[in-house]
Amino acid sequence: MSDPRPDGPEGWGALTRVTEDADLTDSLRRIAGTGCSLLDSCSAASVTVIVARRPVTMAATDELATALDQAQYDMDDGPCLTAARRQETIRIDSIADDDRWPTFRDAAIGHDIGSSLSLPLIISDDGTFGGLNLYAHGVARLSADDQQLAATFALQASIAVSNVVAYWASFDLSRNLQAAMEHRGVIEQAKGILMASHRCSPDEAFAILRRRSQDENRKLRDIAVEIVALTQTGDPT
């Protein structure tokens, strides 16, 4: 049997490096690639994330995995969706002989994929489900030992994916807040200019800005940027 220890295969160190990736997709692609590389027969892998009941392949080793996932999304059914939603592992030794998901079966046959292994990723975020999908050419190429090894990896990957989701959510929030601070700054400058030129209150200055926003159907911050810029060269109002 293959070594199922969390610190066993060298590739598992990839899970600790996900925060060095450029974004969430890179992190999940690394997880998909590492999961596939652990199994000798794995030909392609992907990570499915279901948010608000909508499944999406967040990362894949190649287009083959994406195509097989899409065949399942088109029918809103298939082994990887079932694994993610029911949080159970589904191993198919011979996809051609499995009649549960005909669309997926036909797509797999079309890509010469004979066996698959779908494992749940337990994501600590309400309403979000994940799955690791492993595909292999040929029949019965993913064994019970492979399943045990992949299940242990998926458990570790679940923690990494949850952390990555939280990390990138915080990163996005930080970036959005930085942009918001910049927009707020220029809007406050424009309000100050209007308060001085119109001798009005902050609320009235904001009303002037948003009336122009309405009249021109433009974002208020774009108008504020113009006012601040024009103040340096001419009449801002």
Partner: peptide, 12 residues
């Protein structure tokens, strides 16, 4: 709420 709040905060 957080998405709306960020936009609202940016507007002052």
């Amino acid at each position: 709420i957080m998405e709306l709040w960020i936009d609202y905060f940016a507007l002052g």
